[in-house]
């Protein structure tokens, strides 16, 4: 395993040096630039050369619906966008749109949508939580919690629509948090998203 000086790029090779990096005294410094030991980073490339190692066997996507694949690819497009890779973002979006075009339309009314959301809230969120707790996967716990809270708000907006009909939006707009999907009806976006805590400018107004 090798360690690299974050200041000058000097490479400490444990094998060549015969001493594990961790065993070096705390006052040891980079022989080239004098940086402290703490300024060295393990070289991740050497540690895990095979990219394929992450996640092990790649699961077959066949059991996923076209729309689920569309969401996977639009999510990867966001991942590319966040890393400032616009070309890759566009290519991922092209594939996402392709799967969206394959997705069948769903015949339904507002009541069907309401029932679907309620049945998720009665079951799958709980199952996701159990699996995530067991695997100590806090990322999954976080995503599941946000999605559950967002589903609760969606359910309540649908209930209010059933009760109030057209009055639901009298003098009001609908806003969606662009990070977690929180839905808000009001005269302006909330100062902070109640679910994911991003500021108001992260909300989009539905027009």
């Amino acid at each position: 395993m090798t360690y690299i000086c974050s200041i000058c790029g000097y490479v400490y090779d444990e094998e060549a040096a015969g001493i594990p990096f961790a065993a070096l005294p705390e006052d040891w410094t980079c022989p080239r630039c004098g940086a402290e030991k703490a300024m060295f980073d393990p070289d991740g490339k050497e540690e895990a050369p095979a990219k394929a190692e992450a996640g092990g066997q790649v699961q077959t996507p066949v059991q996923l619906s076209p729309r689920a694949l569309s969401a996977i690819f639009s999510n990867l497009a966001r991942g590319a966008q966040k890393q400032y890779h616009p070309q890759e973002e566009a290519l991922f979006m092209e594939i996402s749109d392709y799967f969206l075009s394959l997705s069948p339309a769903e015949e339904c009314n507002a009541g069907d949508l309401h029932s679907l959301v309620s049945s998720d809230l009665a079951g799958i969120y709980q199952e996701c939580e159990e699996a995530a707790v067991k695997a100590a996967d806090r990322g999954a716990l976080r995503a599941r919690l946000w999605s559950q809270k967002v589903s609760r708000i969606v359910e309540s907006v649908l209930s209010r629509y059933e009760r109030e009909g057209g009055r639901l939006l009298e003098g009001k707009n609908v806003y969606v948090c662009s990070v977690c999907g929180f839905v808000f009806t009001g005269t302006q976006a909330p100062e902070i998203c109640p679910v994911c805590k991003v500021p108001a400018w992260k909300f989009d107004m539905i027009s």
Binding site: G55, N75, A77, G79, S147, V176, I206
Partner: peptide
Amino acid sequence: VAQAIRRSSRLSAEDIAREAGYMLPQSA
């Protein structure tokens, strides 16, 4: 309202997809 829910569901689905193993575009 449905337009808002469509957008909301996509965002939630993307977040769940991310935590179901598709976080990094450059991952294996």
